[in-house]
């Protein structure tokens, strides 16, 4: 058995010196932190970057004439596990078919993205908007008009100059 293998309950006096270098190393590390850039994202003013695949508010796409791509087949409403989609088809005589009413309850929606996956026409997709704010339950019933451009429902907040100076 070597001298090194013995665990001593009481250290020698000379052994205490080995505690000094970790202390200095710790000080060096925290000073490096002090100089480096902070990682906080100041939320309402700065937004986190999200990927293209982020599943946020829904969007109903339209073709170049401004007509809805949706043909009201009802697959999205069928596949929706949260039953957030209510849709009523409308079929005029000329062979067209489009939704008369298309309401997504964003409070029920779990943002799984199944509707986007199942849609045969690519008419519905989920955007990157993740911070819609409103005050009543009715505001979260997104109708066709509201589903047109989710970008405008992004939560916008900037502090004014007075707010920045006086708090």
């Amino acid at each position: 058995m070597n001298e090194k293998d013995i665990l001593r309950a009481r250290e020698k006096w000379s052994g205490k010196i080995k505690y000094v270098s970790p202390l200095l190393k710790g000080l060096q590390y925290t000073f490096g932190n002090f100089l480096s850039k902070h990682k906080t994202i100041q939320y309402p003013e700065q937004k986190r970057h999200v990927s293209k695949r982020w599943r946020g508010l829904h969007q109903l796409h339209r073709d170049e004439n401004g007509k809805l791509l949706c043909v009201a087949c009802g697959l999205c409403a069928a596949v929706c596990p949260a039953r957030a989609i209510t849709l009523t088809p409308y079929e005029p005589e000329n062979g067209e078919r489009y939704p008369a009413e298309f309401v997504i309850d964003e409070l029920r929606c779990i943002f799984c993205g199944y509707c986007q996956e199942v849609c045969p026409r690519g008419a519905i997709s989920l955007s990157q908007v993740y911070d819609y704010v409103d005050s009543t339950r009715e505001d979260f019933q997104f109708s066709i008009e509201k589903l047109h451009d989710p970008e405008q429902y992004r939560f916008q907040y900037q502090r004014s100059l007075t707010q920045k100076i006086l708090g």
Partner: peptide, 25 residues
Amino acid sequence: KILGFIQLRHGPNRVGYWGLLQPFA
């Protein structure tokens, strides 16, 4: 502030510019 910077945070920065009115608050 220094504790915040060391922990990669901002520290108080809402009351006044750069949090300068924080002691008075």
